[in-house]
């Protein structure tokens, strides 16, 4: 009896250990390449200079951030960009995914075309729209050429106010990012059995009701994934903005980090940038957690078990 029981127990224990052994390399990798830099940045943001050079522990870096009016403008701009662009992108991407999922004639060509913007690096997108949106850029030229605008009516896209600038950025970002979102949503939709929606229609649902009560709830995991990835990415938009408007014209959080860390050479700016990056990291995490909470994804396991 005992003899036959012991190997079983050992095997059970081995099985329980297995996951930890399997993730150990990843944990070590993260400890070296992720945790260490993060700790370094956090401690650095509380120092006036490197410890070796006689740096002291201080809150001045944070004080510098919080007394900088650019920081507040950046915060507000980023918030607007995140909320508006992610909602806009989600709605459009969802609609496109539904359309492509219908498998109409030429839908694969359409999918291919839609993916092109996604494959472009941000620098290329920025350069392209920078030259496109200039008053003498290709967009105005094209409009004039097509006879939509007169030579004197060229639109000064880049000379608008803050609101117009944000809108422009949101549109450019949407142009690049919608395909990405659409593909995630499309893959989710293709994982659904068509009978699920068909049953909804047979049992009295209009197309809207089926979408709202069956398709969307069944896509919840996919939607949450897509949204989280986009929210995080949207908080970190900066390169396109700098490519189109240059620094400090449309301040956003990430851009301000770059401004402080790279643009100015003084140690104080570098330290302020570090503080700012810690704050941005905090904001990204908080936003993710808040979204997961709001969408109910964190409580999902409990709900199913009940």
């Amino acid at each position: 009896m005992n003899a036959s029981k012991t190997p079983g127990l050992i095997r059970e224990r081995q099985e329980r250990m297995a996951p930890y052994l399997l993730i150990a390399p990843a944990v070590i990798y993260y400890a070296i390449f992720w945790l260490f830099p993060v700790l370094n940045a956090i401690s650095g943001s509380f120092l006036s200079a490197p410890l070796k050079q006689g740096g002291e522990w201080t809150l001045k870096n944070y004080a510098a951030v919080f007394t900088d009016s650019m920081f507040y403008r950046a915060l507000i701009n980023t918030a607007i960009i995140v909320v508006v662009s992610v909602s806009l992108e989600f709605v459009l991407a969802f609609a496109l995914a539904l359309l492509i999922n219908k498998k109409f004639r030429g839908s694969s060509l359409f999918l291919f075309l839609a993916i092109i913007p996604m494959s472009l690096p941000a620098v290329a997108v920025g350069a392209m729209w920078n030259s496109g949106l200039a008053t003498n850029g290709w967009l105005n030229s094209a409009l004039v050429h097509l006879g939509i605008l007169g030579e004197a009516e060229k639109i000064p896209f880049l000379a608008g106010g803050q609101g117009a600038n944000i809108l422009l950025i949101i549109l450019v970002d949407a142009w690049q990012v919608i395909p990405f979102m659409m593909i995630i949503l499309l893959s989710g939709m293709q994982g659904l059995k068509p009978e699920m929606a068909e049953a909804g229609r047979v049992f009295g649902g209009t197309r809207w009701q089926v979408l709202h009560k069956i398709t969307i709830p069944m896509l919840k995991q996919t939607i949450v994934t897509a949204m989280i990835l986009r929210i995080i990415a949207a908080i970190q938009i900066w390169l396109i903005i700098v490519m189109i408007f240059g620094f400090n014209r449309l301040p956003v959080l990430m851009e301000q980090i770059v401004v402080n860390v790279d643009l100015y050479t003084a140690e104080t700016f570098f330290r302020k940038g570090m503080a700012l990056s810690v704050l941005v990291a905090l904001i990204v995490s908080l936003a993710s957690v808040a979204y997961l909470k709001a969408s109910g994804a964190l409580g999902a396991k409990k709900e199913e078990a009940s």
Partner: peptide, 20 residues
């Protein structure tokens, strides 16, 4: 007519009951 107006109901081969 659209399916919802037909007064027809159906049992699907793979049941298609909604998991959520």
């Amino acid at each position: 007519l659209p399916p919802k107006d037909r007064g027809v109901s159906m049992v699907f081969q793979n049941y298609a009951i909604w998991p959520h």
